[in-house]
Write a protein that binds this DNA or RNA. Structure first.
Lengths: 339, 339
DNA sequence: GGCTGGCACTCGCACGGACCGAGTGCCAAT
DNA sequence: ATTGGCACTCGGTCCGTGCGAGTGCCAGCC
């Protein structure tokens, strides 16, 4: 029916207007600003249906309509076209990200860039260790029995871990240890590192066995766990721009500091490289009930390294933000592939 | 005169009451809550004098008095006793910081701890590189002409830097380079590293000279600059707790993300180890006009490594926060000395 | 049957006046 | 110098009112 089609146009118009003005939008304003070819009265009928179906709602009786989470969902899924970035924006991304000197710098720039492009809070996950491979291991003796183990991955990430050994070790022991570890682990995917530990310990000369076991264990522990817990957040000042009530941003700020919660959201990315949008209640976290998360995985080639995205109010420019997130992720993926 | 003495008592009482209630404090309430031994009328006279001297002010005619920056300053300098931490708090600090596995972890815990103890925004500067010494240098080849240089300091900090070489290098070259760099720089204070570069380049075999020069230059650059620009921030959610107007926290959040500004404040610490308090306008940064910064240097022994502190509204519990900042700094100093 | 113009109705909100009470400054008394 | 008394100021709150945006419904029209 032609009616359904027009109702969707009405919904799209409501979302667009509400996003840009932040005012509940009424039938008259809609008829004026969009040429839907029908009168306000007709639009009212459509709106009544849309409301009954749960796509829009009115904050109070004598106000206009506001999209619900469900309404935004339909908009994102079926009503919005990908908004390509302008040439200037592409240029800005390139200019901004080139010239980074190391991984930390790349990600730092990424998060600032994303925050600026979208005017939202930006979040970038450090490349997940378990999907990278070992480039090099370094062992440094701090004191007699304390060793610092440094792991360098092929994504340019550097992890460190202090290991307390049961006994004092000599300088030669350290050199041996370094050689053995590198022989065993270099080139291995971190995810497989755990399974190699028994081998390494077995082939070690007896007097080093305890040492190798301790260090390997610490290494595996480092790889598996904190690899997940590093997150860069930027643009929190953008939160203060939209909110009227400071109490409402507190839970959000807390969630962002908590990291765990956000990390879960960001790291659950689609393997196909599609941009994922979670709207309001879909997040299933109390603190994020009024917020939407737009995220995507980044990586080089077919290897996913991590996720990045933005967090903002459900009332956001989805097409624009999705485009920005996707573009930045692509560029970061290329950049990391090149290093 | 006895008057002066009592007037100071009145000021102290005003600060204390205002900090705990957030309401402008009037003469009657003051007389009730503190036994100053005089009547409200007398207190009013004292308040009039204090106001004339610029220590307090009234937001509007029929309201109580509020301390000015100058009033807080006097309070901090002359009217407040250091408030020792409770045994439980000391215990909590210990429990919280022990068990950290690396530098990043130590500082991460520190910032969370400080934010929790003070209910303010906490800030911790990474140990300044130039005051540390080189423990070890590692060179890893990423591609034919790209090298990753990793620097490990005796404070447990790990710095990395990617260097693009003018020409391809061989595996042997990398090994030579590593040996030479370590021979030259290990044990050197980073601040002195720059002056050693010419020596190193001179003693290098001719075919490696360009390479050594490039890497050394990158190294020195890494040491001098980004050593200053790393900052950990935590507890921003505490900001939302106090503010009524979200517009007022925006500049603060921006300043915190900017890092540079806050870093300046935090790193300008007293060499004697005293806690530094900057109140409101004393900060000389627009965004921090309504905020106070409590900071102190931390370090092991006589070596200052960096600064840490808190940022909060001028209306804060100075004695408590100063005590917390000092205690945490001491403990972190000890912890880093031990590693 | 669907669209449209008209119309009565509902509310949220902004505005303005009245009231209240906390707090002050001054003054005369001690 | 301190104190009790007192008139005064003024911000905050509480209502009552009017306004306007927006709606739902209905009868008429294409």
């Amino acid at each position: 029916m032609a009616h359904d089609e027009r109702r969707l146009q009405v919904l799209r118009a409501i979302v667009q207007d509400f996003v840009s003005t932040n005012d509940p939008v009424g039938s008259k304003a809609l008829a004026e600003r969009h040429d839907l070819g029908v009168s306000p009265a007709t639009i009212r009928n459509d709106m009544a249906v849309l409301e009954e179906q749960g796509y829009i709602t009115q904050p109070h009786t004598s106000a206009g309509r506001v999209p619900t989470d469900k309404g935004y969902r339909l908009f994102v899924d079926r009503l919005s076209a990908v908004k390509p970035l302008s040439a200037a924006e592409r240029k800005a991304i390139e200019r901004f990200l080139d010239g980074a000197v190391d991984l930390h710098d790349v990600l730092g720039r990424t998060v600032r860039l994303l925050a600026q492009l979208t005017s939202q809070v930006a979040v970038v996950q450090y490349p997940t260790l378990s999907r990278s491979a070992v480039r090099h291991l370094e062992v440094v003796q701090l004191t007699g029995s304390r060793l610092l183990v440094v792991l360098i991955t092929d994504t340019g990430r550097v992890e460190q871990r202090i290991v307390d050994c049961p006994v004092d070790v000599t300088r030669d022991d350290v050199a041996d240890l370094r050689a053995m570890l590198n022989a065993a682990f270099t080139g291995a995917k971190l995810a497989d590192a755990g399974s190699k530990v028994p081998d390494v310990v077995d082939t070690a000369p007896p007097h080093l066995r305890a040492l190798v076991a301790a260090v390997s264990a610490a290494l595996v522990e480092t790889l598996v766990e904190p690899g997940e817990d590093r997150l860069l957040v930027g643009g929190t000042a953008n939160l203060a721009r939209v909110a009227v009530d400071p109490g409402s941003l507190r839970p959000l700020l807390e969630a962002l500091e908590e990291q765990v919660v956000v990390l879960k959201l960001i790291s659950e990315v689609d393997s196909g490289g599609a941009v994922l949008v979670r709207i309001g209640e879909e997040n299933a976290y109390e603190a994020l009930a009024g917020a939407s998360v737009v995220s995507v995985g980044y990586g080089s080639g077919d290897r996913a390294l991590g996720g990045l995205g933005i967090v903002g109010p459900t009332r956001m420019d989805y097409p624009g933000n999705m485009a920005a997130v996707r573009a930045v992720a692509r560029y970061v993926g290329q950049l990391l592939a090149g290093s």
